[in-house]
Write a protein that binds this DNA or RNA. Structure first.
Length: 712
DNA sequence: CTAATCGAATTTTTT
DNA sequence: ATTCGATTAG
């Protein structure tokens, strides 16, 4: 048996198309992989195939994903499949790999060895600071807009000097000025934002021929997952690192492109076969996840999009249940319906996912789940390393490792409050700007020159001494002990407690968790040469500390977060015009992306799919009324079962105005059931009982009324 | 310098 | 409704 016969075992449980992809000859391959068609499987098997057929050694292979979740999953599955962990195989996110390259070549990239990664939050803070310093009117062009502008420029590989302005209006001019200052500050403070990671490596490879040759020779096979999410810079970056010889193995699905608002270019996937001649195109259309009903619905919806490569999912699986549709009176009623159904459908709560368009929709759902005492977990929101307390402590650490880090300096100079306010900081900034030095150096200079008056001099001295003591300890203490030390001595815990007792306690617990995380890190990275730097990068690049407990919870998340996941039962809620598709997308003329989002949502379900919409819901504290989403209409009616739900035929509340006389036909508003009219009444005074029709054609609700009923 | 108060803005989110 | 930020009063 030769090696390739052995490897053919890898092909055993694959279908024809998957096999064709995995065992493809050494050319470029573009795999159009529909939802649930086993794309990760193909990717992982391809790597194993290359290794086992000895087409490549592990260090010849580069595998790129977008999220850490995907990268971790890929690594796990490769190890499971091969039975060992191939050393030298480089897998990771675009940003993770770029970071790796910059750490290797920091000198060539003209960075300090201890350069720090700036997350979007810190990037925004920095931009705001610069706007203030440059005295630019932030009402003309908001900081967020400028942040987007800068990132967009970088994603087009445009430096501040080389920006090609589309328009020369005042706003754009101002944004460009900020961009210039921002670049300067980052360079000076050794700060690299997310996009900069990619841009810097891109420039490095572009401008340094020997380095470029080195990597182009090393990587003979480059595999990319979720290619539809790449932006311009990532694509250019990829082409550069691939060079003329490397073979690309690209997996993606244009129908699941839902990140255009973040710069993802669906065109890349269409461009690839044109730019890389002799690309083998393979479609994976057999779906192993969902029932026929669900797939038919998904196909029917996505068919309404004009701009697609074309693909139709099919399955050998069962017909399955029809889709269920519930029309709710309002968002509370919708939530009650979903929770009621979940309760009815058994105790395997983790089989249920509730998906929604906007995260604000989660609150009502959460309340309904609490009300019925059903365990749940909301995904998204604040992640561990994004929490203020964690970032505060890490800023101390950053300043200790690299004192010129202005972002870290600004963050903690007066956190906790030590009486260093604007009056004191402003001269430091001025000096720093004037001399072209960091805030840290400026404050030392100013102190030496007796530039601080009275109290300021004392507090600044204390602060500088404190940081200096930390700097010394970076050489002696273990990472986790250093963090522990910082927490104990910096005064943050007391500061948090003083601000808010309960919240403060939680923050302190998180700080304890940070020490554990550092300990964990030490254990898993024993031979790490620069543990502090790597830990800090890990904290920013992989902010998720998700101890995804596989416990029995209903899962709540936005549709965006659901991509790549699957659930036995999916509740897709808030299917209303204006919400989903979202009004902003309609205004921008980007319904197709919303439709792809809907397609993603539908194809998350293995067995049952519940759709729901509410006739009215609260929106920014105001009631709004909307029609059912067009996406519901795009699903063939014969696939849909309309369901009714009668959860409160006798809703009781207290009379607010006992002597009120209610006439039949009076329009009323109820916080739970929405708008209706009084159709009947019995009794009077204190125990008046009215019957209200809250939906013209459905069931009637008898209300024993009325503190929360408003007469209209 | 800090605390309180008022007003504006509010899709989606990874790295 | 709720949050964040800027302005204003202590």
């Amino acid at each position: 048996m030769n090696i390739c016969d052995d490897a053919s075992l890898l092909l055993n449980d694959l279908n024809t198309a998957q096999r064709e992809a995995v065992a493809a000859p050494e050319t470029h391959v573009l795999v159009l992989a529909g939802a649930g068609s086993g794309k990760t499987r193909v990717l992982v098997h391809r790597i194993a195939w290359l290794l086992q057929c000895q087409l490549a050694r592990a260090n010849h292979i580069l595998a790129v994903t977008f999220t850490n979740r995907a990268a971790n999953e890929m690594r796990d599955r490769i190890q499971k499949l091969l039975g060992y962990n191939p050393s030298g195989l480089l897998t990771g996110t675009f940003h993770g790999i770029a970071y790796y390259l910059l750490r290797q070549h920091w000198q060539l990239a003209q960075l300090p060895e201890t350069f720090q990664i700036l997350d979007s939050d810190e990037q925004l803070r920095l931009i705001k600071r610069i706007i203030k310093e440059a005295k630019i009117d932030d009402k003309v062009f908001s900081p967020k807009k400028i942040q987007q502008f800068i990132n967009a420029c970088k994603e087009k590989a445009q430096r501040a000097q080389s920006v090609v302005l589309m328009s020369t209006d005042r706003e754009t001019q101002a944004a460009l000025t900020v961009y210039q200052f921002y670049e300067q500050t980052c360079q000076q403070s050794g700060l690299v934002d997310f996009t900069e990671l990619l841009l810097k490596t891109y420039e490095l490879l572009r401008d340094d021929e020997s380095l470029r040759k080195h990597y182009q020779t090393r990587f003979k096979h480059i595999l990319v997952d979720e290619f539809q999410d790449t932006n311009y810079l990532q694509y250019e970056w990829l082409k550069l690192i691939a060079g003329p010889a490397a073979k690309l193995f690209i997996v993606g699905d244009d129908d699941q492109s839902i990140y255009s608002w973040r710069g993802a270019r669906i065109e890349n996937i269409q461009l690839l076969p044109v730019e890389f001649k002799e690309t083998l195109l393979i479609r994976l259309e057999q779906n192993y996840r969902s029932t026929k009903m669900i797939l038919t619905a998904a196909n029917a919806v996505i068919r309404n999009n004009k701009n697609r490569l074309g693909k139709e999912l099919w399955t050998n699986g069962t017909e399955g249940d029809p889709l269920f549709l519930y029309k709710a009176h309002n968002e509370i009623n919708e939530a009650e319906f979903i929770v009621h159904k979940i309760k009815l459908l058994g105790k395997d709560y983790h089989n249920n996912a509730i998906l929604y368009r906007t995260s604000s929709q989660s609150r009502v759902l959460e309340e309904a789940l609490i009300d019925q005492q059903i365990p749940y977990r909301i995904y998204g929101g604040m992640r561990f390393y994004e929490r203020a307390e964690i970032k505060d402590v890490l800023a101390y650490l950053r300043l200790a490792v690299y004192s010129d880090d202005d972002a870290a300096f600004e963050r903690i100079i007066n956190t906790p409050k030590r009486g260093i306010g604007e009056r004191t900081i402003e001269p430091i900034r001025a000096l720093a700007r004037q001399q072209g030095i960091s805030l840290w150096r400026a404050s030392r200079l100013l102190l030496a020159d007796n530039g601080f008056k009275g109290r300021a001099a004392k507090t600044i001295t204390e602060f500088l001494h404190y940081i200096e003591s930390l700097i010394e300890q970076t050489h002696t203490l273990l990472l986790s002990d250093l963090i522990k030390k910082i927490i104990e001595t910096c005064g943050l815990p007391d500061f948090y407690l003083k601000d808010n007792k309960e919240e403060g306690q939680r923050r302190i617990e998180n700080l304890a968790e940070l020490i554990s995380a550092a300990r964990q890190f030490e254990i898993f990275n024993r031979d790490e040469e620069k543990p502090i730097l790597t830990f800090l990068a890990h904290a920013t690049l992989d902010a998720n500390n998700d101890n995804a407990n596989e416990t029995n919870h209903v899962q709540l998340m936005t549709l965006h977060l659901a991509k790549g996941l699957e659930f036995k039962r999916v509740f897709l809620c808030g299917l209303e015009e204006g919400l989903f598709p979202h009004q902003n997308s309609l205004d921008e003329g980007n319904v197709e992306e919303e439709r792809r989002l809907c397609y993603v949502g539908i194809t998350r379900a293995r067995e049952q799919l519940y759709l729901s919409h509410a006739e009215t819901r609260y929106y920014y504290g105001e009631r709004s009324y909307s029609r059912a989403s067009r996406f519901i209409r795009e699903i063939p009616a014969e696939l849909i079962d309309h369901i009714r739900f009668n959860n409160a035929p006798n809703y009781q509340a207290n009379v607010k105005n006992k002597n009120e006389k209610f006439a039949i036909g009076t329009p009323v508003l109820h916080h739970k059931f929405g708008r209706g009219i009084i159709v009947d009444k019995e009794g009077q005074g204190e125990f008046t009982r009215i019957q209200v029709d809250f939906s013209e054609n459905d069931c009637k609700w008898i209300i024993l009324a009325y503190s929360d009923i408003e007469l209209l």
